[in-house]
Write a protein that binds this DNA or RNA. Structure first.
Length: 494
RNA sequence: GCAGCCAUAGCUCAGUUGGUUAGAGCGCCUGGUUGUGGACCAGGAGGUCCUUAGUUCAAAUCUAAGUGGCUGUACCA
């Protein structure tokens, strides 16, 4: 035979195949979160996975093409379209387009795949699943407070217990105020400096205080010897920011009230800063009244979060327990977050539409639940495979399976062409509990044989002698055909 | 993007200072059993040693470039 060159079956890097178990886990996790959002009165929404690049803001006007981090192509009308990089961009488009007919505030939840053309890593893919909830068109603290509390409820509903997670609440204006107070003068424009300060601070978790100190100053060399240029701040400014971060670390043990008072005493001379404290106090008051204490929601001023469009309160949800890995104990870290974005819809609508929302990344949450052994799947495993013993009687075997299905038992009739051995092997691989065998013997005596494949697995460990193995014919029962359903039900209920 | 490490069977890996026909375990297939998966026994299939170029009498082994992977770091609207 001619040797043909095979095409190597290879999935694009950064993309993931989900098979039975992980897909069921994903669906269940999504449902448990969305159930909470629905309970709060949020309504579901689906938007397409492709949007016009300029509409969702991935188009670079000065370069005549979309941002490189976004998967994009030119449509046949020469207009650029992109795979969505988050769910918020489509929401903003939807709201701006249907503004007049929507209830205000408009509260919706949405889940789906989003795409980013970036480097992949372990647990970090170029296609990943997000679950969002947003409130569009509300300016007041209740909508922010609601996000935090709903977030907490949703995480709890996935099976993660209080104490194993924490919602950290802060406000972008805190840092804006502090940086404003530093009176930074330098070569770069103010917003550039702000950005690199924020980015440095965002890395506190990973690099620690000393790492942040280096990034705020000259720069930092990493393990591989690569060098990151710093923000180039003066020493006095760095000291102030570091002392602020230290107070943030301490604040994790404090009540929200005391934390806000401390912050106010330490830095409270700036208008922007005071506005931040005011907003947080109001949110905290609502959360207090609703009965969510510091075991669920704390104030942590070091939360910076999504450096882009956030304008006010920001939230981040962390898993607080550690996991044993090859590198020792490691934290699970952030599983989602969000915040207030008052300017996003305005870009498309013209008028200001204040909004706030949260987003949960599912893959980390999934591995966390797996680690906690909470990922039990509520979907029934396959129960029965009806073997095809006589190929001319396929329709009769199919009828048996269909009878069992009518009783609510997950059952299938073998649809392949293999012999009995192959069929049992198939049933085994499918993790089926039972095989139903109706061959010549059974037909003659008007019976069925029901084989419990799980019992066979248990028994197999103890047998090493071939004769015993064959003589055993273990784990199967021969019952009258009329008792088929009854017998199967009683085995499955054990 | 930048930097470091790595690439041998489906998977995990071994492979001597460069030297015949490249190995192991697991998995897969077949038989032992015309009607029995999973234990056990026997046998079998499966490889462009990532790709290309170079050094050499000789390359899985040495060199260079490319590709892919891992780790760190940057970017992530």
């Amino acid at each position: 035979m001619e040797k043909k060159k095979k095409i190597k079956p290879q999935r694009p890097r950064g993309f993931e195949d989900l098979s039975e178990n992980s897909l069921n886990e994903l669906i269940q996790l999504r449902d448990s979160i969305q159930k909470v959002y629905g309970l709060y009165g949020f309504e579901p929404l689906e938007t397409g996975i492709i949007e016009y690049s300029d509409v969702i803001g991935s188009f670079l006007p000065d370069q005549d093409r979309p941002n490189e981090g976004v998967f994009s192509f030119e449509d046949d009308d020469k207009r650029w379209v992109s795979l969505r990089y988050d769910l918020t961009s489509g929401l903003a488009r939807y709201v701006a387009e249907n503004f007049d007919s929507l209830p205000k505030p408009y509260r919706r939840y949405q889940s789906g795949w989003v795409f980013r053309n970036e480097k992949q890593g372990p647990g970090r893919y170029r296609q990943f699943y997000q679950i969002d909830a947003d409130t569009i068109g509300s300016d007041n603290a209740l909508s922010d407070a609601e996000m935090c509390m709903m977030f907490s409820d949703a995480i709890q509903n996935t099976g993660i217990e209080v104490g194993n997670f924490i919602i950290r609440l802060s406000n972008r204006k805190i840092l804006d105020g502090i940086i404003d107070n530093l009176n930074i003068t330098g070569n770069s424009s103010g917003s550039d400096i702000n950005l690199s300060i924020m980015r440095s601070i965002d890395k506190l978790d990973r690099l620690g205080l000393s790492g942040v100190e280096q990034l705020l100053g000259e720069g930092r060399k990493d393990e591989s010897g690569d060098y990151t240029k710093g923000a180039g701040l003066e020493k006095s400014s760095i000291t102030k920011i570091l002392s602020f971060l230290e107070s943030g670390i301490e604040s994790k043990k404090l009540s929200r009230d005391i934390c806000l008072k401390n912050l106010s005493n330490q830095f409270g001379s700036n208008i922007i800063f005071n506005k931040a404290i005011e907003e947080l106090s109001e949110i905290s008051k609502i959360i207090d009244t609703a009965g969510y204490d510091e075991k669920k929601i704390i104030i942590d001023p070091s939360v910076v979060r999504g450096l882009g469009y956030y304008t006010g309160p920001v939230y981040e949800a962390d898993l607080t327990f550690t996991m044993e890995t090859d590198q020792g104990l490691e934290k699970f870290g952030s599983i989602g977050g969000g915040g207030r974005y008052d300017d996003l819809v305005a870009r498309l609508k013209g008028t200001r539409v204040p909004s706030t929302g949260i987003s949960v990344g599912v893959s980390r949450l999934r591995s966390a639940l797996e680690y906690l052994n909470k990922s039990s799947i509520n979907i029934d495993p396959l129960s029965v495979v009806v073997l095809v013993m006589d190929k001319d009687k396929r329709s009769d075997y199919y009828k048996i399976a269909s009878r069992l299905r009518n009783e609510g038992i997950r059952s299938e009739c073998y649809v392949g062409d293999g012999g009995m051995k192959a069929q049992l092997k198939y049933a085994d691989k499918r993790n089926a509990r039972l095989a139903v065998i109706v061959g010549e013997d059974e037909l003659a005596s008007n019976t069925v044989t029901i084989k419990d494949l799980f019992v066979g697995i248990e028994v197999s460990d103890k047998i090493s002698d071939n004769k015993e193995w064959r003589s055993g014919k273990d784990s199967q029962k021969n019952v009258p055909i009329n008792d088929l359903v009854k017998t199967i039900k009683s085995i499955l209920s054990k």
